[in-house]
């Protein structure tokens, strides 16, 4: 597969050999919704928010290779409805209480829900019982908000070389676990400065002491939508 161009909602976007639709879109400044994708890490393809219609088929833009002449549909009403449903599923699966979440306003899950006009969760809440791990002096692991994107897993394993996190369990019982016999974050070798602390798209990994540095109402996604700003973790950018 050589270099070429694809179109995204009619706009011509060039790609280089080996690029995914998402990578080509990012390079061209075209926003495709996503949560588990991060340009620095290997494609994962689990959240499915980036599902687009390419050549008439539904594919995850973050894993589907670009190929010359491919026509990609990104912001259609049908895809928006599908993405809204995925967001609603993520909201009811966990315990997402935006009003008192440190990440509110900077949260990518919330920002995408704003972007797709989600006003209600649509499906019955699961209200799962999940453990909060506050054992670590520098970090709180708030599993109620975890969406299993595995960005921290990849960052810790592939960048930090530590493998502090991984997904255990199956199906709806899948959960984020940490690498210690006690199951406590304090007993892992997680340390300040780890890349794994700076990639969480939601409020599941919270570095202590900076939660409310910027007041609610003045945060990243409070006034401008994520498709204009991109997926960012502003606390780590300061």
């Amino acid at each position: 597969m050589a270099d070429g161009t694809i179109t995204i909602d009619g706009q011509t976007v060039p790609f280089t050999e080996g690029q995914t639709i998402m990578q080509a879109a990012e390079a061209a400044g075209v926003y495709i919704a996503h949560l588990c994708h991060h340009p620095e890490f290997r494609p994962h393809g689990s959240c499915k928010l980036c599902t687009v219609k390419a050549g008439g088929r539904h594919v995850a833009a973050c894993t589907a290779p670009a190929s010359d002449g491919l026509e990609v549909e990104n912001e259609s009403e049908e895809l928006a409805a599908g993405r809204r449903a995925l967001l609603q599923l993520l909201f009811v699966e966990g315990n997402h209480y935006c009003p008192f979440c440190e990440r509110s306003g900077n949260c990518q899950l919330q920002a995408l829900a704003y972007r797709y006009g989600m006003v209600e969760p649509h499906f019955p809440h699961f209200y799962p019982q999940r453990e909060v791990d506050a054992s670590h002096p520098d970090v709180v692991l708030e599993r109620n908000r975890c969406i299993l994107c595995a960005l921290c897993v990849r960052a810790s394993r592939d960048v930090d070389g530590k493998h502090v996190f991984d997904i255990v369990g199956r199906g709806i019982h899948a959960r984020l676990a940490v690498n210690s016999a006690s199951g406590r974050l304090a007993d892992t070798d997680l340390a300040p400065g780890d890349r794994a602390l700076e990639v969480c798209p939601v409020g599941a990994i919270i570095v202590r002491g900076r939660g409310f540095a910027v007041p609610i109402g003045e945060r990243l996604y409070d006034h401008r939508p994520i498709n204009e700003i991109g997926n960012r973790v502003p606390e780590s950018e300061q």
Partner: peptide, 21 residues
């Protein structure tokens, strides 16, 4: 299907449980 979903992707992990309920 809810029991056998691997839990990797959102639509299947959550969707199969919502559907079963």
């Amino acid at each position: 299907f809810a029991h056998e979903s691997c839990g990797f992707c959102t639509p299947c992990r959550v969707g199969t449980s919502v559907l079963a309920q």
